[in-house]
Amino acid sequence: MDMDDGMSMDMSGGSMAGDALDPQTTENGLFTVSAVSRLDPVVINETHAWTLHIETDDGSPVTDAEIAIDGGMPEHNHGFPTAPRVTENLGEGDYLLEGMRFNMGGVWVLTLEVSSGGQSDTVTFEFELK
């Protein structure tokens, strides 16, 4: 890392390394969920959108999911400063999640409750903004 040009540190003060969360399987194994931010890199104090992608365990896209959003900073005992929600089914298992915002650096969680075909399952992503 180049030390003294300042460029390597441009996003310090609250940003995520990269723009995507590693795909994760829901608690009971029903779905695999991945999340990619449309703001790259993810920084604090900017309201932005993510694209969620949902598949069944055999890899086929879930195109009729209902998705409830929760999250925040468990260590600080607060939620998101906004009320993010899925606003659009983009097709082929993709969903638009709008209204995401982080207001400080630290460890955040994003919990998605995915419902499809009469079944629900939950997944929690944990990530750090440094």
């Binding site: 890392m1 030390m3 003294d4 540190m9 441009d10 310090s12 003060g13 609250g14 440094k130």
Partner: peptide, 29 residues
Amino acid sequence: VGGGGGALQPGVAPAHSWTETERGLIASL
């Protein structure tokens, strides 16, 4: 910790010695 940085400056107080992370945080303000 900072992985390098400025050359040693004899006589400069450690008050102004920052890690790379700290310098990034200062710059963000």
